[in-house]
Design a protein around this nucleic acid. Sequence first.
RNA 1: GGGCCCGUAGCCCAGCCAGGACAGGGCACCGGCCUCCGGAGCCGGGGGUCCCGGGUUCAAAUCCCGGCGGGCCCGCCA
Length: 654
Amino acid sequence: MTTPDPYSELIESVAEALVEIVGIDERKAFHQVRLSDRPGYGDLSLPLLRYTRTLNIKPDQLFESLKSKINSKTNLLSDHQLVRGYHNMYIDESKLALALSNTLREYGRLEPPKTRTPMVLVVEHTSANPIHPLHMGHARNTSLGDTLARLLKARGHRVNTRFYIDDVGRQMAVLALGVKLLGGDPLGMAKRLDMKPDKLLGYIYSITHLLLDIHKLTQSINDPAASEEEKLYYIRERDKLAARLVAVSQEAPGEIADKLIDAFSKLKETKEPEREVSEIMRSYENRLDEGIVSLIRETANASLKGFRETLSKLGVEFDNWDWESDLVWTGLVSKLIEEASKSPYVTVHKDALAIDLSPAMDEQEVREKIKIPKALEIPPLILVRSDGTTLYTTRDMAYTLYKFRQTGANKVVNVIGADQRLPQIQIRLALYLLGYKREALNTIHYAYEIVRLPGMRMSSRKGVFLGLDEVLDQTYNVALSRVEEKSPDLPLDEKEKVALKIAVGAIRYTMIATDPMRPIEYNVDRATNLDSNSGPYLQYTYARANGILRKAGEPDWDRIDYRAASDPTRRGLLIAAAQTPYYAAKAADDMEPVLLANHLLKLADRFNSWYQKDQVIREKEEETRNFKILLTIIVREALGMGLDLLGIPKTPRM
RNA sequence: GGGCCCGUAGCCCAGCCAGGACAGGGCACCGGCCUCCGGAGCCGGGGGUCCCGGGUUCAAAUCCCGGCGGGCCCGCCA
């Protein structure tokens, strides 16, 4: 049983009336209903001028017929006005308050209205390579993905969240080599060094990678075929990497760096390191060597243990963890390649098996549903390397099909950086041409722009990135000192819990409150910002409402003066609170969490403003006092619902 | 070279997809408010060529075309 939502029903009534009178389609009608704060503009309004011409009707005639149609569908409106071509509607605040009061009495909470078209949805997000700790780029991915999942679930869809463990491929092989050189057992190593395993592995990966690159450059420098100019370039490059190696080595714990450098030199004497990496990669992908299999699985699992720890702080959990290697080992990938090789679109590109994607560009269906840039030349997608190993895009095609098959999903949403747009388009086009049209057209690349550090780009390969754990820690410390200052009487463990909630709120809010298409430049001040445009501000306002209610106690629900809602400040606050489920539903439908975040900010502003000038507990008149308590409850429930959906932890005190 | 994305006050950002009524917030800045339900707050103030130029329209920050600036992508990496 879903809770009814008076405000959404009101919007729906207006939209339906518009559909019936003007004859536009429903989706469009919803967009035409304007919500306004400004006095004199109506609580809701419809611009009429755009219809009067096409319908050949006078504004006042249209206004009258809309008015009576709308009134036949809802009784929540008290007045309609025609002003300069706008149909302005005013909400009957007493009736709205009563309706919300009834909802809360019956269900005890607010929630977004359920969709009329529930679907099965997969949301794949985060999916960080298990070769280094999560950084702030992942924080954006995680926050968006987890929030989307929460919103869609609340909207009535069946949502399945998945994490793709990218354990096949060169990066993982490089890390495995490093771990092998250090004698294996990454988890034990982390324990001995008292360090998060993902962090330790991050160092091992960076150092190993640098050693390989330096080695390669050294070979180029010694190559007699190289010109003097080229040699100078290589030497400069090698010096840069060497400097980085020194920096990372100093930061790395224990004797890790020394041991690695030492073991790497020994390896060089007997074997070409690059060949060792390729062998690891190939024997893992083809499952030739159980020793390598357990080395890589153990290593990846150690990283994932660290990921889980961080993610659980952020309140993020996954329904499924999918190993990329399983897709290869169970034959899903090779089966797909086999199908592709029989396809009429198969071709050879640069001597490798590939699929020619250009025919898909002619399909109108494809152009419309997969957004293909008009003049984009899509290169053929290579499916298999000439050494027989597969590429990530090929495996991702198999994974896409896997996600549909495992869940019976209607749509698969993949939260992946915008920099991967082209390969993501290629994957969908290739699936389409192989006959998986439904899957191709219902796979959504939910793209977001990068998180930059001031002046530089994060690069895990170069060991340059802002770690999520570090940002969490810093924000936590700032929050803890604020809590100590503001609530000295809380017990210490309580203060710590609250400080963590604030840190999580600050980070998650920041990550979703900017349009995903806009790059974020990140400085630490911004992460630790607890001021008015922030998650903690919302948490603070929620705590404040709870503070009032703790002291005010339960209202007598049968003795509430709903007419007290007419005071303009209370009225504005009531309406804003009532809109919350509606905005949550819209945020889910449009897949734009920021819509809800912005609305909550406005609600919090209104509440704080009201709070300042209209005393609740000290109100003498009993029925008015009951109304004010009710209003506070409504606000608390609206904020609480919103915070839950955004994954920002609630705290009754802070 | 080609493609995609972004360009709104000193700074950060809503609004653009679904064109309409004075372009909204926040930070910073200036001035007020704590014997008073939680001051992480509230009230007030200054600050704008909505990147530029055309076009469509009764109406353009919003749609179209052309520029400019920045980011990203164009690999048998992921």
